[in-house]
Computed example of a mutant assay.
Amino acid sequence: MTDVPDPWNEFARQFGARLLAARAEKGFSQEHVAHAAGLATFTYRKLEHGESNPGTPANPRLRTIVCLAEVLEIPLSDLLPQPPEGVAPGR
């Protein structure tokens, strides 16, 4: 085990912040976005917090990300932050 922080934690946190900002801009509730995207409200809330389980960064499916962008009426590029630098693919 290492003390080096997982760079995907920050990516997931930024993704969640972008979800929250887009949702707030539209005036949508978490329940509305979750239902429209085919998610449980609990799952959507966790995405806004950038986690899937405590201490584990969110890792939503591609279909989920696309559905969220459509529901929020924003391009994917506005929803996704830049991936962490220096991270090997799949890590």
Rank of each mutant, 00 (worst) to 15 (best):
L62K: 11
Q82E: 11
Q82K: 08
A69S: 03
G16Q: 07
T43E: 14
R63Q: 15
A34P: 10
K46A: 13
R63E: 15
E73T: 04
R45W: 05
P60C: 05
E31G: 03
L47T: 01
P81S: 07
R63H: 10
Q82S: 04
R63D: 15
P60L: 04
G27A: 12
A69D: 08
L20M: 14
G50M: 10
E73P: 11
K46V: 03
P57M: 05
G55E: 13
F28L: 15
T64C: 04
H32G: 07
L79F: 01
A40K: 11
E48V: 09
L76W: 05
Y44H: 06
S29Y: 02
E48Y: 13
L79E: 12
A34K: 03
E31P: 03
T56L: 11
A34H: 09
N59E: 11
L76G: 13
R18K: 07
G16A: 00
R18H: 07
P54Q: 11
G55R: 01
G16F: 01
K26C: 00
R18M: 02
A36V: 03
S77H: 01
P54F: 02
R63P: 04
T41D: 12
P75N: 02
C67A: 15
S52Y: 13
A36H: 02
G38A: 09
Y44L: 03
A40N: 06
T43G: 09
D78C: 03
P57V: 03
R61Y: 15
C67S: 15
H32A: 11
T41V: 12
P60S: 00
P75C: 05
E70H: 00
E25R: 14
K26R: 10
G16L: 00
A24Q: 15
F42W: 04
E51I: 14
Q30I: 02
A36E: 10
E70P: 05
A69K: 05
E51D: 06
E31R: 08
T64Q: 02
R18C: 06
L68T: 09
F28P: 11
E51Y: 15
P57H: 00
E31S: 05
I74Q: 04
S29R: 01
E70M: 10
D78A: 07
P84K: 04
S77D: 10
L20W: 01
Q30A: 13
A21D: 12
P75A: 02
P54G: 15
H35N: 09
T64W: 00
G50R: 13
A24N: 10
A22D: 05
P81F: 01
T43W: 03
C67L: 15
E70D: 14
Q82W: 03
S77N: 04
Y44R: 00
V66P: 08
H49C: 10
L62C: 00
E51L: 10
E51F: 08
A37M: 03
E31N: 08
A37I: 05
N53F: 15
A58C: 02
A17R: 15
G50E: 06
G38L: 09
L72D: 12
P75G: 03
L62S: 06
E25P: 00
R63L: 14
L39S: 11
K26I: 04
Y44N: 02
T43K: 04
V66L: 09
D78H: 06
N53C: 04
Q30L: 00
I74H: 12
A37W: 00
F42R: 10
L47Q: 12
